[in-house]
Design a protein around this nucleic acid. Structure first.
Lengths: 190, 190
DNA sequence: TTAAAAAGTTGCATAAAGTGAAACAAATTT
DNA sequence: AAATTTGTTTCACTTTATGCAACTTTTTAA
């Protein structure tokens, strides 16, 4: 079952790169006979061997184990501006308004939000750190973005792409309400 | 090297679930001695064995192959509105203007763009499909978003989160230039 | 159409290495 | 300190991955 998926993937990638069994054999230091058996699912190669193959094919080894996920459902989810869904996000919520921009059920990577920063924001209290990856774009107003020990000034239209494991936080820097689009990715999910 | 990472991950997960080698042994139908050797990186188990372990641990097997990436560098990258870097993206480029919103070097998941849709856009020509995950937010103007056989109308502030393996394409639906923020994620990367 | 070359599969023999049982060592508990 | 549990290692065994070469199938060329 699993071996079958791996076998198919190897063959597909090999073909896509135009290699013959013999050529891949030389690249990986494995006999073409063995490669044939692997592609035909007659052996359960040790990871050391799989590793050789992934190197020869120049693909990350993880590729072999990524099960194709069927998104199920429709495959998309629209969120109209006026229908943004306010949500509670752990911790910070008390001070800021969060609105989710997605309603996809399945375990997607992208988590999009709109965050509103009110004018009357006190001094930065708690900073926020978490694994993954994050992207922020200022939609309205001005933001002072605290990242570790730095303060980065962002105006409307500016954006920042950063590693969120460093403590960080946005803060309104203008005299009107500010608004940001925030994309969070939780790498651990897969 | 690779085996070490896998070994460490197994041990970590086992510990996190509070299993002893013996318990996991019963769950996976493997001897505790063998499990010990695997965790200590003394053997290169065949994927069949790894599969048993992933089942016993109740985690997707792919988890063992997800390499932790060290972002290196500063950890963030700011892109000011006026300094967005125009880029060429395969295929479509001829008709649309793409601007990258990130300059992080390492292989990050998030790829942020701003796309400008000119007023004089002809009928939708080529659709665009690729693996991964995508999110789009209309920053300016109006967009008719073609997704498979559907046409979805999006106004400024609206957004859509979708599976990009279905052929898709945005198209200006107004009398002025339109602008979208697009986030693309290439799941294959890991 | 046939011959020749290349690509892929399969027997076979061997050597390597994964594996279990049990003895051993280390750590934790009573 | 004894006893129980958890983790490591020795040893023998056997499974099986692997290379080599013969064989079959497909493609190319003449």
């Amino acid at each position: 079952m699993l071996e079958k998926q791996i076998a198919d993937k190897i063959k597909k990638i090999r073909k896509s790169k135009g290699y013959t069994l013999d050529q891949l054999g030389r690249l990986t230091d494995l006999s073409k006979g063995l490669l044939s058996r692997i592609e035909n699912c007659q052996v359960s190669p040790p990871i050391a061997t799989l590793s050789k193959i992934s190197h020869g094919l120049e693909v990350p080894i993880g590729i072999f184990f990524n099960v194709e996920e069927t998104t199920g459902e429709e495959g998309y989810a629209v969120t109209l501006k006026n229908e943004r869904r306010p949500i509670n996000r752990r911790g910070i919520t008390a001070e800021l308004d969060y609105y989710s921009l997605s309603s996809l059920k399945s375990d997607n990577l992208i988590e999009p939000f709109v965050v509103k920063y009110p004018v009357t924001q006190k001094k930065p209290t708690k900073l926020y750190d978490h694994p993954g990856e994050e992207f922020l774009l200022v939609l309205k107003g001005k933001i002072n973005f605290i990242y570790g020990k730095k303060i980065i000034r962002l105006e409307t239209g500016d954006s920042i792409h950063f590693d969120p494991s460093t403590p960080h936080r946005g803060q309104n820097a203008g005299k009107t309400e500010s608004e940001c689009l925030v994309i969070v990715i939780d790498k651990e999910k897969e």
